[in-house]
Write a protein that binds this DNA or RNA. Structure first.
Ligand SMILES: Nc1ncnc2c1ncn2[C@@H]1O[C@H](COP(=O)(O)O)[C@@H](O)[C@H]1O
Ligand SMILES: [Zn+2]
Length: 236
DNA sequence: GTTCTAGAAC
DNA sequence: GTTCTAGAAC
């Protein structure tokens, strides 16, 4: 039974258009902001250049009020400026740094760290994420092709499905990594049967010789010497 | 992931 | 000279 329904709060075309207008407004605002920040930095550097020897690398805080950088999606899920829609299971947000004209992220409300933590019971949820993505792009009616998938090696925490139009026309697309992460096997299509391979946990934390589990690397290292024949504690 | 920027490449 | 790219950010 599909719980997803078109309601006034979800995927009406009017609402979609509204969110896209927000995209444009926010985006130009963001660019203006970045330019302003850059201008301020330039001014500051000029002043410092008047006093030689006072130059030092600008210190930057590594964590912010919203937590470490790789936890940013958690806050963005509840950011009304980014949220496109939500139902009982999922939230869809606009990607904060869209790599194409349309770029959304679909996140389960129930916190799942990454693909490797998925279990067979999650399959209906994954199907639902894909289904509402298709509903969204259908409602948007952009005439653009879309792809729906996961990054094989994500940087951001919390499982998220990329919904990205295939124009790749965006100032945020800047690096080879950006390109390749959406246009090689790095991008795992949600509907691809190979998808299941990406859900396998690769960290097993066991000895490579005898499969004894270990909890810390020092513990592993003291165990490893037991496998060295005629161990004399010498190296090289 | 992004930002910033030094040094490479053009 | 400008453009591009890769690495640090503790
Ligand atoms: N704070 C944020 N809010 C929303 N989207 C973000 C945020 N930080 C990064 N992103 C996007 O999240 C995606 C994470 O990529 P990945 O971890 O490779 O799947 C990228 O497309 C980023 O543009
Ligand atoms: Zn081409």
């Amino acid at each position: 039974m599909c719980v997803f329904m078109f309601t006034s709060n979800s995927l009406t075309k009017t609402n979609c258009i509204k969110y896209l207008l927000q995209t444009t407004a926010r985006f130009s605002h963001q660019r203006a902001h970045q330019q302003a920040v850059r201008g301020m930095a330039t001014n500051k550097r000029k002043n410092e250049d008047d006093k030689p020897g006072t130059k030092k690398p600008a210190s930057r805080t590594v964590t912010s009020a919203s937590g470490p950088w790789n936890q940013g999606l958690k806050a963005s899920m509840n950011d009304p400026g980014l949220r496109v829609m939500a139902d009982d299971q999922c939230v869809i947000i606009r990607d904060k740094y869209p790599k194409a004209r349309y770029h959304f992220l679909v996140l389960p409300k129930r916190s799942i760290p990454n693909l490797k933590k998925l279990v067979p019971n999650d399959i209906p949820l994954l199907t639902h994420m894909y289904d509402i993505s298709k509903e969204l792009t259908a409602a948007l009616d952009t005439g653009l092709e879309f792809r729906y998938g996961y990054h094989a090696v994500p940087s951001m925490s919390l499982l998220h499905l990329h919904v990205v139009s295939q124009d790749f026309d965006s100032p945020c697309l800047k690096t080879k990594k950006h390109w390749n992460s959406f246009n090689t096997e790095y991008f795992i299509d949600a509907e691809d049967e190979k998808f299941i391979l990406a859900t396998k946990e690769l960290y097993v934390d066991k000895c490579h010789k005898c499969s004894k589990p270990f909890s810390t690397i020092p513990a592993l290292k003291s165990h490893l010497v037991s496998h060295i024949p005629n161990n004399t504690n010498k190296s090289q």
